[in-house]
Design a protein around this nucleic acid. Structure first.
Lengths: 340, 340
DNA sequence: ACCTTTTGGTTAAACGTTTAACTAAGGTGG
DNA sequence: CCACCTTAGTTAAACGTTTAACCAAAAGGT
């Protein structure tokens, strides 16, 4: 049978209240008794009971982490890295993380994660794009929520976001710095705020340098940002405008798909065409040539999200804070100076 | 403030004990009061408090799920699928799943997951190969443990395993059925029971058909079962014996790596060389040609593991049961009949 | 020397369940 | 009609914490 607070109290000749105060670092306890109690705790291998604690403090001690199934099972460990960061950070806080996958299919969003139905979390982290219905259903429960790498249409939620606008500008800027002026953009799901912002950054960078923007150099009709769609995007792009010398793909998956197409039709990367991606996924360095990209701090985003929800639960801040994570240009070999 | 059992009791004019009995489906309650109570529960949106429940039942209501970091972040969603299955199955049981990643590096295994140090789980699922030290450290806590897709050297643990022996035989048998007789095996970490068993199956299938086994056709010196190692394994293999017409790779990652090598040196798959993998990962159908492989029921393995730990906790069975998951030949285009 | 703080603790209630032990009211057999 | 069983419910203790309210003793202040 596990040792309880009573056992510790008995062993150290104090009341259970004293033991509790020691555990919670209350300053009302003298150095001596503290030491005495700590010794007993150690000797008995005592661990406070979570349920007892949660019961009186009226908390669950859990944070729910919601992710769509397909994001969780994606080949690229993007959201899993975010989860990893969140779980690691949770170890510094009194929280456990409950991970729940939901269907990305919005038609069956009547089912909320069990931990919300059962009220077993204190707060929720939602990573990536999820169906709007999920969010509205969740609203009824009024849990504190932090979004990561996605932001629902109605405002007022706390969120950890990538600085996509800036990133889009930096990426485009890099291509401009390499001497390119006919720069295309390959995008996917334009409903997604991240992609929209990257596109926006692309346009702003062009404008800033007085370069012309043309819809002929933009692909934004692909539904998903997958490798296959990058491949097909590249093909339709060249049909629309074969003058382009550089491409900014809205993410690495599409960039890699596009690269594959170019290779197949015999274009040299980066000699004939430069390409830059976004995300910095593992695959980038295995691909040939290694992909220049914008690095996004995935693990850090997870820990920021956990820290944020924790702060909200401690009432240190209200629930609308937003954090923009900086993004970093990673130079590899898929981009180069334009020869002419 | 959330409704408690008291509110329900008051609203339905019964004692809290009655409410509790209703919730737990005790047959001592008449149909009428049951209905009355249920109505009140519904009206108040009452949900029993986990912590109160856990406190009196002396359980945590949690199952810990341990995975090494690299397995969790792998490109191929193998272990994540297992986790997914476990989490889905948990919804049918009174458990939440606490996922914890540990370092695969055995040098720093003094740190156990927080949920074991804090005694916050009732049982543990360990997926994939983990450092032996983790297991011995864990032993002191005497939690019920179920292993998935790995099995520690000392016996006596419950486990959900792939029927690798059979799978290895089937895979090899398939190649034999295609008319091949010079069949090579590409393996990795031979410390891993799964790989050893697949190799064993390979040998048995050869033997059964009276085909000669030769060490010249076996690669087992690669450290990891990664794509790159598959690539290099293929290259050394051809140097040892260039008569081979078919290859059984111990997993899909290695198979894909090997395929890449063959393509680069101009060999046609399957015309010049047939290749079969193991695992049935997503990538298989995207690769060219699509890879013939042995399908392993990853999600099912997760749910089986959860069911198993649940049975153990209910004392329905003791903690040494083993489940062998069947494996399925998936015919695609990387293998074909030998022309001669 | 007496009142007031401060220090370092203790007592006891409360958190929301489950469940063993009890009870009141009907039903049953002889 | 009485003793006994069954049915359907209640009472109260217990689970292991936290924390507000209390208190005794020591320390200051005048």
């Amino acid at each position: 049978m596990r040792a309880t607070i009573k056992d510790v109290a008995k062993k150290s000749n104090v009341s259970i209240a004293t033991v509790s105060l020691v555990i919670n670092n209350n300053k009302r306890i003298s150095h001596n008794t503290r030491k005495k109690v700590l010794k007993a705790i150690d000797a008995l291998g005592y661990q406070p009971s979570r349920s007892a604690r949660d019961l009186v403090s009226r908390k669950s001690g859990n944070i729910g982490f919601i992710l769509t199934e397909d994001h969780f099972l994606k080949t690229e460990p993007f959201y899993t890295q975010i989860f990893l960061g969140a779980e690691f950070e949770a170890r510094q806080h009194p929280y456990y993380v409950l991970l729940s996958m939901i269907s990305a299919d919005s038609s069956q969003q009547n089912t909320l994660p069990r931990f919300v139905l059962e009220n077993s979390v204190d707060g929720i982290i939602i990573a990536g794009k999820v169906p709007e219905e999920l969010i509205t259903n969740l609203d009824k429960y009024s849990f504190p929520v932090v979004f990561v790498d996605y932001y629902p249409s109605e405002n007022g939620h706390a969120a950890v976001l990538i600085d996509n606008l800036n990133g889009g500008m930096q990426a485009t800027q890099h291509l401009i710095d390499c001497g390119h002026s006919k720069i295309a953009f390959i995008g996917g799901d334009m409903e997604h705020p991240s992609i929209r912002d990257r596109f926006q950054g692309y346009k702003m960078a062009l404008e800033k340098k007085g370069l012309s923007f043309s819809n002929e150099r933009v692909i934004n009709t692909e539904i998903a940002t997958s490798r296959e769609n990058g491949y097909s995007a590249a093909s339709t792009l060249l049909k629309k405008d074969n003058q382009i010398t550089a491409i900014f793909a809205c993410n690495d998956a599409m960039a890699i798909g596009a690269m594959q197409y170019f290779k197949e039709i015999g274009l040299q990367i980066p000699a004939d065409i430069s390409i830059i991606g976004f995300d910095d996924v593992q695959m980038d360095i295995l691909v040939d040539p290694p992909l220049t990209t914008m690095q996004v701090p995935k693990v850090d985003m997870g820990s920021e999200a956990m820290r944020l929800i924790s702060e909200i639960l401690d009432h240190k801040i209200n629930g609308t804070k937003k954090i923009l994570m900086p993004v970093n240009l990673i130079l590899r070999n898929s981009t180069c100076k334009l020869e002419n």
